[in-house]
Every structure is written in C-alpha cells, then in structure tokens.
Simulated scan of single mutants.
Amino acid sequence: MAHAGSLKSRLIPMQQKPLLLPASCIADVVDYSRPSGGSQENKWFLGEIDWRGQTVPLISFERINGGRFAEFSATARIAVMHSSTGNEQLPFYGMVIQGIPQELDLNAGDIQLVNETDSIAGSAETSRVTVRDIPAAIPDLEQLEQQLSALLTAA
C-alpha cells in the first residue's frame, strides 16, 4: 500500500543500468516487435511499431545515451511512453527495455544521488541514483522527446 508522500514508480530493466521513472510515464508494456523504417544517421531511432492501431516511433535509450545496444534479446519488450512534454505530434513513443518493469512505491529516503565523480551520467540522463541499493539512471525524457520530435519533423 502506498503511503502519503510516496511516489508510484517503475524500475525499468535495460541492457546497462535500469531507469527509474514515475509510473505515470508508462502507457503500456508490450512484447518486442521488429520496427519498420529506422534511421541510418540516427541509430537510436529504430523505426516505428503499431500499438493499438497507432503508429508509434521506437527508440533505443542506450544508443541515444551514448551506450552500446544489442537490439534483440530474449527478454526484450517495448515500454510505450506517454509524452512528458504534451507534444500533440508525439503523444506516445516506444522504448526498448529488457524485461518487465518493477513497481515501486518510493519515499524520499529510498533514493540517493550518486556522486558524479563515481559515475558520470550519460547525455540523455538527468542523474544517476541508487534506489534501495540498486544503481539506476533517471532519464531526461524532455530532451529525449525533443530530439525524437526534431527527427520526425525533419523526415
């Protein structure tokens, strides 16, 4: 049961460090399906998938964050994300994840910022944290969505 002041969150399994997000960011988690399209110049844009009758762009967080990314694995899934910026041209987008997100009810004391000298945040992260002793990253969804929106507008 959630306590007053707790935040419903999801710990999203990734190939490198898991991502920590508010539960409200995630619209759905679906089985991985191979996207159509994609971009040779922007390898983080994997193409588009069909979700509930809509075409949704699919990204690799690891690639946009400057890390390595192996597209296919037995545990790959797609987290369909709500736009955090309210962009009407991009109401949803997909992100490849590795498995089922873990639900967490977090209180302020459950999250510690990681000292930047120990762990440099990637370009698409706002910070690195420890959540109940699990190292995680907080993604910069606004920047990520702006990059995706700019790419789709240019296409």
Rank of each mutant, 00 (worst) to 15 (best):
Y93C: 08
E88K: 11
Y32P: 02
R34C: 09
G53A: 09
G38W: 03
Q16R: 13
I49M: 09
P35S: 07
A108C: 02
S36T: 14
A155S: 15
Q16G: 09
A2M: 03
K43Y: 10
V29N: 08
A74I: 13
I26T: 00
G109P: 01
L46R: 09
A124H: 10
A108E: 13
Y93M: 04
R77A: 04
D105I: 00
Q98I: 00
P18G: 01
I12E: 05
V56Q: 06
G67Y: 08
L20N: 00
F61P: 00
A27N: 09
S24C: 02
P57A: 06
R68L: 13
V96T: 15
C25W: 09
C25F: 13
D110H: 08
L113K: 14
S6R: 05
R52F: 03
Q112H: 05
K8V: 00
A74S: 15
Y93S: 09
T153C: 03
E116Y: 02
L141H: 06
C25D: 09
T85D: 02
T117I: 12
M95K: 01
E125P: 05
R68H: 05
L19T: 04
A154L: 12
I59W: 02
E145D: 07
I59Q: 04
R68I: 09
F45R: 02
Q146E: 13
L141K: 06
A150R: 11
Q143Y: 11
A137M: 08
I12G: 06
D50S: 12
M1K: 07
V129T: 13
H82V: 08
S60N: 06
T126C: 05
T85A: 10
A2I: 10
Q102A: 14
Q40E: 06
S119E: 12
G53T: 13
R132P: 11
F72S: 11
I134T: 15
E62I: 12
L46P: 03
A4T: 00
T75V: 15
L20G: 08
H82S: 02
V29I: 14
Q54F: 05
A137V: 10
A27Y: 02
R132F: 06
D110P: 07
Q15A: 14
S84A: 12
F69Q: 11
V96N: 07
L90C: 04
